[in-house]
């Protein structure tokens, strides 16, 4: 018999995680090693705002909206990615955190079209953000939407460069790597090679980038066109979760239906099979029942 097998049947791969005691906003709480400050905050019902954080992806650490204060740290700490440590003392709501959040919202609001970003209006009010303070003549990422295929639209005037589409297209889910961040600084942008059109790229139209986009910069053409026509109406839409008909994997599809027509297909982020991802057939192959 070979002696290379190390685990007996039933042995879990990861050892159980140790308990960590920390303080959040004055309340002592117990978490598990490896938990993030954000996950602890959410379990305590503390609403820390996030934009670039997607619950199916590794933290991108880019938007810096979720910053909190950790006692002893020189600068603020991103709650989405920082793991808890024993005796950590976290403050989620202080003058410093409120200032940082206000400024992130003002910086984004003054450079990016946030009109289809959920919750952002409420946060602006909560943190007193006024993006017009910079004036109307400042640099923005305004540009026409890219409509270069019949399945989805890339409206980079709405892009906050959260990296989530790149991560979903790349190593974390799809592994197609059709898109990357190109350029640097304020010129950084999501692009395919040589800023070509999508049909000339490796894109396989799974739309998993759309699924993680937090601002509506990436949108199925159905939604984009209906919004343009003024017929998109979430209040008239139902969401029904069913199973994709296209192969035996069993991906759950959530069908967004308006006026008895499927207008968008997503998959639940907490579904063990898909983690919110689909292939081109599942996401776009619904027209045969229209």
């Amino acid at each position: 018999m070979s002696d290379v097998r190390t685990s007996a049947p039933g042995t879990p791969v990861a050892p159980p995680r140790r308990k960590v005691t920390l303080t959040v906003d004055g309340t002592e709480t117990v978490a598990r090693e490896g938990d993030t400050i954000l996950s602890v905050c959410r379990s305590l019902g503390i609403d820390v705002p996030t934009l670039c954080y997607g619950d199916t992806l590794e933290p991108a650490n880019a938007c810096r909206l979720c910053m909190v204060e950790v006692e002893g740290a020189r600068v603020l700490v991103p709650s989405c990615s920082r793991e808890v440590e024993p005796d950590m003392n976290v403050t989620t709501d202080s003058a410093r955190t409120r200032h940082a959040r206000r400024m992130v919202l003002e910086l984004l609001g003054s450079s990016v079209d946030l009109s289809t970003t959920p919750r952002v209006e409420a946060w602006m009010a909560e943190f007193g953000a006024d993006p017009t303070r910079f004036g109307a003549d400042v640099a923005t990422v305004a540009q026409p939407a890219k409509v270069d295929n019949n399945l989805y639209v890339r409206d980079y005037a709405k892009c906050i460069l959260c990296y989530q589409c790149v991560d979903a297209c790349g190593e974390q889910f799809q592994n197609t790597f059709a898109i990357s961040v190109a350029g640097r600084g304020f010129d950084a942008r999501i692009a395919v090679e040589f800023d070509a059109a999508l049909p000339d790229s490796a894109c396989v139209y799974c739309g998993n980038c759309i699924a993680v986009c937090p601002t509506g910069a990436l949108m199925p053409s159905t939604e984009f066109d209906m919004r343009a026509d003024g017929t998109w109406d979430v209040s008239r839409q139902s969401e029904t979760t069913t199973v994709c008909p296209y192969c035996g994997v069993g991906c759950n599809l959530t069908l967004h239906v308006q006026d008895n027509r499927i207008v968008k297909v997503t998959s639940p982020n907490d579904h063990s099979i898909t983690s919110g991802n689909l292939c081109v057939k599942g996401r776009f192959g619904f027209t045969h029942v229209q």
């Binding site: 069913t242 035996g248 994997v249 069993g250 239906v257």
Partner: peptide
């Protein structure tokens, strides 16, 4: 009717997982 979106029921996938299909459209 289309079994995956116009009627109710269950299907079973390759990992033996039984899941509900649901009616979303008429």
């Amino acid at each position: 009717s289309a079994a995956w979106c116009e009627s109710e029921g269950t299907v079973t996938n390759s990992e033996r997982r039984v899941q509900r299909v649901r009616k979303a459209v008429e």
